[in-house]
Design a protein around this nucleic acid. Structure first.
Lengths: 218, 218
DNA sequence: TTTGGTGTTATTGTCGACAATCTTTGTGTT
DNA sequence: AACACAAAGATTGTCGACAATAACACCAAA
């Protein structure tokens, strides 16, 4: 949990950027944000440094910071990495996860399924559940560097693409089946298959967002 | 190039940690380092934040920072990632690199070969050359997130393992041939082969360092 | 002797002000 | 009218001091 003031404001700004409250591409003003969140520039700059780390803002020395802009090229680059890294996470998870951890993930999926049946097509819960699933697999890899990159550095940007470009269509309900198949492969200790399924899962997700992106800006 | 004071001190501390001038596992004292590099704590803390980003130090809120310790598990986790990410870099480079860029890398290798013939077994130059080669391939992938992770976040730690655990034996001279084979595959636009060769190359490097690690601490 | 609590010390987190740099606006020249 | 240059304004980077938290030492009691 957030212990320092910089931690708190980081979470607030992360949420604001991901949800578009602070618009993509807009300039960041340190004095303004300091007033808005009622703290000094010192902890704010600490937060900005971490925002840069997770690719939500871009800083230029002596010139200031801007919120990142979403683009097709950026999406593709990001998802190329995700496919590779989460595929690796699946292979490692198939070796490293305990039976108890696997059972937990399965229980999580069943829980998601029951709530999703009720809120058919509602994207927010699905997204939260999807991220939750991916988080579990990544943590299951037990590789600290991999966990850091995916959970701390890349996922906020992934969420930003999802939230700002929408996440809907038949894709939402299919994701559950794909999750089921992945955890099943992991339970069978079939890392190669889990890897393949995860890559397909992420690839399908990318194409879905890509469609929204080309449709909206064309 | 370093433009701000925080940039300069970051480079200095990075070098100091990588080369063991500031020992692995030692505690970081902000006031002491501020005096040592003759600046205030503000830019120093900025530098520490970036050091944490590239995994050279570990910070605990309100408790301070320590230089990371090198371990077999850490080495394996790090090189698992390298294999995967640099393999991906090879596949992308085989598609994205221009003929001119490929020619440059080949010229670079020839140049390294001539100097290496002279300084047979000298590890420092080899290491610098090896890193230079890997840098070129990674940049050739044209994927900004991949480049950031490998060049800015992971490579200092890789260098730390290499420098502090030594890099010697017949491995040093073999690396050149492996480099040649990799760039050859990329020139043929054979991404799959380049991927495979790079994974082997990194795997061999890992085993080499692993040997040093088990030998020294046993 | 060991353990628990407390007071002291040192370190980190935060603040407000100053200095250096960049951006912008306005003016003069070609 | 367009361009270059200069001054003004704003923003970022840096500094020194204060506040809050954690580590340490010391003492007391079991």
């Amino acid at each position: 949990m957030p212990v320092t003031a910089a931690d708190r404001v980081l979470l607030e700004i992360q949420r604001a950027i991901v949800e578009g409250d602070i618009p993509a591409g807009s300039k960041i003003s340190e004095p303004e944000l300091a007033r808005r969140f009622d703290l000094s520039r010192a902890p704010l700059r600490e937060a900005l440094a971490r925002l840069e780390r997770c690719h939500l803002i871009e800083r230029i020395p002596n010139a200031g910071a801007r919120v990142v802009t979403l683009s097709k090229e950026g999406l593709i680059s990001l998802y190329q990495l995700r496919e590779e890294l989460e595929g690796l996470a699946c292979r490692l998870a198939a070796e490293q996860m305990t039976d108890a951890e696997i059972a937990e993930v399965r229980a999580l999926l069943d829980q998601h399924l029951s709530t999703q049946r009720v809120r058919e097509g509602e994207s927010y819960y699905q997204e939260a559940g999807d991220l939750d699933f991916h988080y579990r697999i990544i943590l299951g890899s037990k590789n600290p560097y991999l966990i850091n990159i995916l959970c701390d550095e890349l996922y906020f940007l992934v969420r930003m693409y999802r939230v700002q470009l929408g996440m809907n269509g038949p894709r939402v309900s299919r994701a559950f089946d794909e999750h089921k198949a992945i955890i099943h492969a992991i339970a069978n200790r079939d890392g190669e298959l889990a890897d393949l399924l995860m890559r397909r899962h992420i690839g399908a997700s990318r194409r879905n967002i890509e469609l929204q992106l080309t449709g909206n800006q064309a």
